[in-house]
């Protein structure tokens, strides 16, 4: 559904580590099922997926994963409250039409919510936009402005603010930059400046 170059998914193993073994998980925007497969084999998770691209869905089902064709914006309303222990949106939120609505649905369906996204507050992006006056292109956001599926990019700070408005408590915040991961449950100015990507584990307040 969103941008997911296979060689740039270090968030997946970090997400997998946040999930308790043997739990029930829904991966929204599961692509070809990379995360679901990691969760199934390493964490013995009962995993389901939703994926927009039919090719992705068919690839998942062929791999033996339980995945349906669907849309984060439209299809989350079907699921009952507390249907899953974890609901995951990995590098997908920036491509949804209504990120607030999607997060609200996730808050209802999952006891825990995990979201990863590219941080638009990273200094390289700020430099490209602020000093060079160009739409940023980075390793994590490599599409041209006219080709990108990402219509709702946000910074770490923006995201935390939205979570607060939606009564979602940050249980863990993980700032990814280069090969390093920093813990920041209450990310500050430098986290927002240095993180290329962020992963948040959230729960209802």
């Amino acid at each position: 559904m969103a941008l997911k170059p296979l060689d740039n998914r270090r968030d997946l193993s970090i997400i997998a580590d946040l999930v308790e073994p043997s739990s029930r998980v829904l991966d929204v925007g599961c692509g070809e099922g990379e995360l679901l497969e990691i969760l199934a084999t390493k964490r013995n998770v009962d995993g389901r997926g939703v994926e927009l691209s039919q090719d992705g869905v068919n690839a998942c089902v062929t791999r033996g994963l339980s995945v349906i064709q669907g849309d984060a914006d439209q299809d989350l309303g079907d699921y009952p409250k507390d249907a899953f222990d974890y609901i995951i949106l990995s590098k997908t939120i920036q491509a949804t039409r209504n990120p607030g609505t999607v997060l609200r649905q996730m808050r209802r369906i999952g006891r825990h919510v995990i979201v990863s996204f590219p941080n638009f507050g990273h200094w390289k992006i700020r430099v490209q936009l602020g000093l060079l006056g160009r739409m940023p292109e980075t390793d994590t956001l490599s599409d041209k402005w006219y080709e990108t599926p990402n219509i709702h990019l946000c910074t770490v700070k923006d995201f935390v603010t939205l979570c607060d408005e939606l009564d979602l408590e940050v249980v863990q915040g993980l700032m990814l930059s280069g090969g390093t991961v920093r813990h920041a449950s209450n990310p500050g100015f430098f986290d927002n400046l240095l993180a290329e990507e962020a992963v948040f584990l959230l729960k209802r307040r």
């Binding site: 389901r48 869905v57 994963l65 339980s66 349906i68 669907g70 079907d78 009952p80």
Partner: peptide, 18 residues
């Protein structure tokens, strides 16, 4: 059918074949 199965959090896969 898929929507109904989701509503009861059933284990469901769905493929639309081209």
């Amino acid at each position: 059918i898929v929507h109904a199965l989701n509503a009861v959090a059933a284990n469901v896969s769905f493929v639309e074949i081209e």
